[in-house]
Amino acid sequence: MTMTTDQAGGLTRDRLHSLLASVCAQAGLVSDDAELIKFTNNAVFRLRREPVVVRVAGSSAARSRVSTVVRVARWLAGHDFPAVRLLPGCEQPLQVEGHLVTLWEETPEVGPRPGGGDLAAVLRRLHTLADPPVDLPEWTPMTEVRQRLDEPEDLSPGDHAFLLDECDEIEERLAALDYVLPAGVIHGDVFMGNVIAGPGGPVLCDFDSTAIGPREWDLAPVAVGRLRMDYPWDEHTPLAEGYGFDVTRWPGFPVLRRLRELKLVTSVVPVLRSNPGIRPQWEHRMRSFRSRDQTVRWQPYR
Rank of each mutant, 00 (worst) to 15 (best):
residue 198 G to C: 07
residue 247 V to F: 04
residue 196 I to K: 05
residue 216 E to K: 09
residue 150 D to S: 10
residue 232 P to E: 07
residue 200 G to N: 15
residue 207 F to G: 07
residue 163 L to N: 04
residue 117 G to S: 04
residue 191 F to C: 13
residue 254 P to C: 03
residue 207 F to N: 02
residue 154 D to F: 13
residue 134 V to Y: 14
residue 196 I to L: 08
residue 231 Y to K: 13
residue 165 D to T: 14
residue 239 L to Q: 03
residue 153 E to R: 00
residue 249 R to D: 13
residue 156 S to I: 05
residue 168 D to C: 11
residue 136 L to H: 06
residue 170 I to V: 02
residue 120 A to T: 09
residue 205 C to R: 14
residue 224 V to A: 15
residue 150 D to Y: 14
residue 129 L to E: 04
residue 116 G to R: 07
residue 209 S to G: 06
residue 187 H to W: 04
residue 230 D to R: 15
residue 204 L to Q: 01
residue 135 D to K: 00
residue 115 G to K: 05
residue 137 P to A: 02
residue 224 V to W: 01
residue 181 L to H: 06
residue 223 A to C: 07
residue 174 L to I: 05
residue 245 F to K: 07
residue 225 G to F: 13
residue 238 P to S: 11
residue 147 Q to T: 01
residue 241 E to P: 12
residue 185 V to H: 08
residue 250 W to I: 00
residue 135 D to N: 01
residue 128 T to K: 12
residue 239 L to E: 09
residue 141 P to G: 04
residue 133 P to C: 04
residue 186 I to W: 03
residue 198 G to R: 15
residue 220 A to L: 05
residue 179 Y to K: 09
residue 192 M to G: 12
residue 152 P to E: 11
residue 254 P to Q: 02
residue 195 V to E: 01
residue 230 D to M: 06
residue 140 T to D: 14
residue 230 D to V: 06
residue 201 G to D: 08
residue 216 E to S: 02
residue 237 T to I: 07
residue 220 A to Y: 04
residue 211 A to D: 03
residue 178 D to Y: 12
residue 145 V to Q: 01
residue 221 P to D: 05
residue 142 M to W: 07
residue 211 A to R: 05
residue 201 G to L: 10
residue 194 N to L: 12
residue 196 I to R: 12
residue 121 A to I: 15
residue 198 G to I: 00
residue 141 P to A: 03
residue 145 V to T: 03
residue 252 G to C: 12
residue 219 L to A: 14
residue 204 L to E: 01
residue 119 L to K: 03
residue 168 D to F: 03
residue 252 G to A: 09
residue 233 W to F: 15
residue 167 C to W: 06
residue 177 L to K: 10
residue 213 G to W: 02
residue 135 D to V: 04
residue 244 G to R: 03
residue 230 D to Q: 15
residue 165 D to E: 15
residue 140 T to N: 14
residue 248 T to H: 10
residue 131 D to F: 08
